[in-house]
């Protein structure tokens, strides 16, 4: 394992721009270099994970397949905020990927514990 860990922040909704795909690619590349990677989905970013997204009408690639495959890359630390779940009237059961719902203060702790943070 590398001596530095990495936190990646997703804060844009799905299909809006390329930042989610670009951030996901960083996660896969860094994990291949044995860097421990955590992901946190903030604000509209949480919508990236909701179940049953149909990307075909938009003729866009559905990133959900890759998010679902993250465990195969040893990326298991996925976080969402309880406050964001409430805002969108969601529960973690509405999300397609296993995530830990954390408080805002736990997020502050997560940021402090991370050696590197990337927020595209």
């Amino acid at each position: 394992m590398a001596d530095k860990n990495l936190l990646l922040i997703f804060r844009n909704p799905p299909f809006a721009d390329s930042s989610n795909r670009d951030t996901l690619d960083i996660a896969l590349a860094c994990s291949a270099f044995d860097i421990p990677v955590s992901l946190i989905f903030l604000h509209d970013g949480i919508l990236q994970l909701t179940r049953g997204q149909q990307s075909k009408p938009l003729q866009q690639k559905n990133l959900l397949n890759t998010f679902n495959a993250l465990a195969m890359y040893d990326i298991n630390q996925l976080f969402v905020l309880q406050s964001d779940l409430q805002r969108f009237e969601l529960t973690t059961a509405d999300l397609s990927v296993d995530c830990q719902a954390i408080s805002d203060s736990k997020m502050a702790q997560l940021l402090r514990q991370s050696d590197r943070v990337i927020n595209l």
């Binding site: 001596d3 690619d25 960083i26 896969l28 291949a32 270099f33 860097i35 590197r116 927020n119």
Partner: peptide, 21 residues
């Protein structure tokens, strides 16, 4: 080059600064 060069930069530097949108 590939994103591996970014991973290397993360490991080899004291700070990584992102200049995004």
């Amino acid at each position: 080059s590939g994103l591996g060069q970014l991973a290397d930069a993360i490991l080899s530097s004291d700070r990584l600064l992102t200049f995004g949108n």
